[in-house]
Nucleic acid binder design. Structure first.
Lengths: 256, 256
DNA sequence: AAGAAATGACAACACCGTTGACAACAGTGT
DNA sequence: ACACTGTTGTCAACGGTGTTGTCATTTCTT
């Protein structure tokens, strides 16, 4: 196992690396800019690879090759692959925020959440590989923080008490991300495996003896016809309705 | 990429391999038994490895080593790693079915679904590595078929029309599996990364300037306190309630 | 110009999934 | 007893992965 030397995480370079926070060093800028450009280039290259060759094709060597650079040079910019993945995730959230635009003050919180859910779904469709690779990870970056703020604010507008706000907020985001990841896995599998899974329904389940699996057999047509998006929408609406009902109940009955 | 020769999937040995279905060949049994035993042993070994060393530690070589056998011998039993993973997934579903027991005829469909959701959650807790590895895959095996039958039957008992049955059924299973996978990822990460992600909330989000992220800041205590299980239960109940309401609506207003 | 810092490239390590060629063994038909 | 066949296991190897150490080169600071 390529064990990461956690002890070295208190990296000796961190002391000098922490310094650029002071804005006085104007002359230090050009270097930073160059490195930043490399970082951007690496990310866009990684995006293109992930889009075209799927999650399996997104390797450090492949990204470096796309930049006509040695692999190890990439490790000067990203400490490890995980950092690159989180940066990609951060970028996806940025694009989602851009597509989302501003949230009008008078927009109902349900509509805000519907728009967010739709936007996340679309970016999952665009970059399934990145969705599946960064599923359930936390970047801690500014874009993610902004997205969290939008979501928590929307749920807070429902009027629920704080503990219920975070409960429904987490149920919402975790479900949304889980469903997107589910769909993304299906969309980013090797074509061969993908076909295998896809046709499993019709191959296996269509030929079940009626005696053993009557319910499945009775719904086989609908099972093969249902779409991922309709499933997603159903789950999202269920969570919104549950939040609405909880808000109505708490608002009528209890404390603020 | 180690491309799989899909053409060879129509393997020439399949003709002779299909024969053992005939029970007349009694002498051929010992061979099958030996192989079956090896298969079982490999699966239990894989389970132990997955449980103790996580998803990253579960490799073909590692399983073979656990059996004191060369790696390539494993490839006589499992065509590739994917087949081993699907077999593991099947086994997990089997254990879930066993823990689930029989479904009483008079059990309300909501309770059936609650019991299933609880069982899936528990097995996710036990084997997070396998959950994350087989997330969103279809085994097509008997255990999975039985589980599908139980779920579809439960939703059918709600009285919804067939297309709505499969819609809510899929929304339910996909959400449940997605949420379990979400939690399993958190539970099966490298301890180092896991801690990084875990503490991100308190590290990053606790120090946000109030002006930029007021809603997040206002809910920081609740955000760090909420548990994965309570999130899971909230989502499950939301989906059940949505199904109930849909059933009530359809039953009162519309077609049968 | 001298020194320090950043950056890139080469080689290498320890893994991974997978395949092909070959040897040992079981049981079968002659 | 013999060759034949099918199963199971071992050895070596291929191409791939993430990652590190070492060294040279460029770039910036002083």
């Amino acid at each position: 196992m390529p064990k990461k030397t956690a002890g070295a995480a208190a990296k000796p370079t961190s002391k000098s690396g922490a310094k650029p926070a002071e804005d006085g060093a104007v002359a230090a800028r050009p270097r930073r800019e160059r490195r930043s450009v490399r970082r951007e280039a690496a990310l866009t290259a990684a995006f293109r690879i992930a889009e075209q060759e799927g999650a399996a094709g997104l390797s450090m060597r492949r990204v470096a090759q796309e930049l006509s650079v040695d692999v190890t040079a990439l490790y000067r910019v990203f400490r490890d692959k995980d950092e690159l993945l989180l940066a990609l995730c951060e970028r996806v959230i940025e694009s989602e925020l851009a597509e989302l635009g501003d949230v009008p003050d008078d927009e109902p919180w349900q509509d805000t959440l519907r728009r967010i859910a739709a936007t996340i779904w679309e970016s999952q469709l665009r970059f399934p590989a990145i969705t599946v690779l960064t599923f359930a990870r936390i970047t801690g970056g500014p874009a993610e923080r902004r997205m969290v703020e939008l979501l928590v604010d929307a749920f807070a507008r429902s009027g629920l008490p704080r503990d219920r706000v975070v409960l429904f907020y987490r149920a919402f985001v975790d479900s949304v991300l889980g469903l997107c990841a589910h769909s993304a896995v299906l969309g980013s599998l090797d074509p061969e495996v993908r076909e295998k899974d896809d046709t499993t329904w019709s191959r296996v389940y269509a030929h079940l003896p009626e005696t053993d699996h009557p319910a499945t057999r009775a719904h086989i047509a609908e099972l093969t016809a249902v779409t991922q998006k309709s499933i997603y929408d159903t789950a999202v609406e269920a969570l919104l309705t549950a939040t609405e009902r909880a808000a109505a109940g708490e608002g009528a009955g209890g404390a603020g």
